[in-house]
Simulated assay, not measured.
Amino acid sequence: MRHIGWIAGTAAAALVAAGAITYAVAEDTGSTAKVPTADSADAGFARDMAVHHQQAVEMSYIVRDRTKNEEVRRLAYDIAQTQANQRGMLLGWLDLWGAPKVSADPPMTWMSMEDMPSGEDGALMPGMATDSELKKLDTLEGEQADILYLQLMTDHHRGGIHMAGGCVAKCTVGVEKRLAQGMVDAQQSEIELMTTMLEERGAKPRD
């Protein structure tokens, strides 16, 4: 039953947001506009960022149970809520376009990022934590959990910004490009906040 409270809240919000954004996308593309194909940047970004966001939500649930620090818990809640909502939007667009939510192609092919390896031990895309890092986070308590979470989420946001910037450059659906730009702006602001929070704990972001 772990995480049920947060999951219920974020899931409900995501459903509402996804419904609203589906209408926005339909209006934005217009009835005669070309629907993005399964191999387009629009669909690729939606698929990959939905997976990327899911890990951020998972990490935020983990740290919520490992710390009593209200500042960290509040940040984790905000990240979980925002990214669950956005994930609902991304998956809603794929449904609207009739595009698959899972692709046989490796992640990031829509960005032509052959120079960016998938990573090791479960790190699928830029900034994503590895399986061993997630397991470690789930064993820590208090300030140690705070520091690792802030470091992992900083890395995660850096990768997310890179991906969202790619959509801003390559996606064709206006409302999706605007959402991607909003991700860039919001996550950069959160990186600055997390850097300050790490400094207050005698730590810093990882190189």
Rank of each mutant, 00 (worst) to 15 (best):
A180K: 06
D185Y: 10
P117C: 03
A129T: 10
A129R: 10
H162A: 01
A169F: 12
A164D: 01
R158G: 14
Y149H: 08
Q151R: 14
H157L: 07
L152M: 08
G166V: 09
G122L: 10
S118K: 07
Q188F: 14
G182C: 04
A123H: 15
A164E: 04
S132N: 11
L150K: 08
G174M: 01
Q188W: 13
G182F: 00
Y149N: 12
T172I: 00
P126K: 05
Q151H: 10
V173A: 01
M183F: 02
V168M: 14
Q187N: 11
Q144T: 14
A145F: 10
L140P: 11
K135Y: 07
Q187L: 01
D185T: 09
V184F: 07
I161D: 03
H162R: 06
C167V: 13
T172R: 01
M128T: 10
Y149I: 10
K135P: 03
E190G: 08
K170N: 00
G122P: 10
V168I: 13
R178W: 01
I161P: 07
V184W: 01
A180G: 10
G159Y: 04
K135W: 05
A164V: 06
E192K: 15
E133W: 08
M128R: 07
Q188M: 03
I191R: 00
L152E: 12
C167Y: 14
A169R: 01
E190M: 02
A186G: 15
D146W: 05
E141A: 00
E143K: 14
M128V: 07
E141C: 02
E141Q: 02
M183Q: 05
V173K: 00
E133V: 00
G182P: 08
L152C: 06
Q187T: 08
T130K: 11
L179R: 12
M163H: 03
E143Q: 15
L179Q: 14
R178C: 04
A169M: 08
K177A: 06
Q181Y: 00
E133I: 00
A123L: 07
I147T: 11
L150A: 09
L124S: 05
H162Q: 04
R178M: 14
R158D: 13
G122H: 08
I147D: 08
A164S: 15
E141L: 01
E120G: 07
M183G: 04
L124H: 07
I147M: 12
M116F: 13
H157R: 05
M183H: 01
E192D: 15
A129H: 13
G160C: 03
E133Y: 05
G159R: 00
K136I: 00
G127A: 09
G166F: 09
K136C: 00
L179W: 06
A145C: 13
V184H: 05
M163G: 04
L140W: 09
G159V: 07
H157W: 13
S132C: 11
A123K: 15
V168R: 04
A186V: 10
R158I: 10
V184A: 05
L148Y: 13
R178L: 07
L150E: 15
V173G: 02
M116Q: 12
G182T: 09
L150N: 12
T130M: 09
I161K: 04
M183I: 13
P126H: 04
L137N: 02
L152H: 11
D131Y: 03
E143G: 10
Y149S: 13
L152D: 12
S118G: 08
M128H: 04
M116Y: 12
D131L: 14
L179I: 15
L150R: 09
S189G: 14
R158L: 15
D121C: 13
M163Q: 07
S189I: 10
A169C: 03
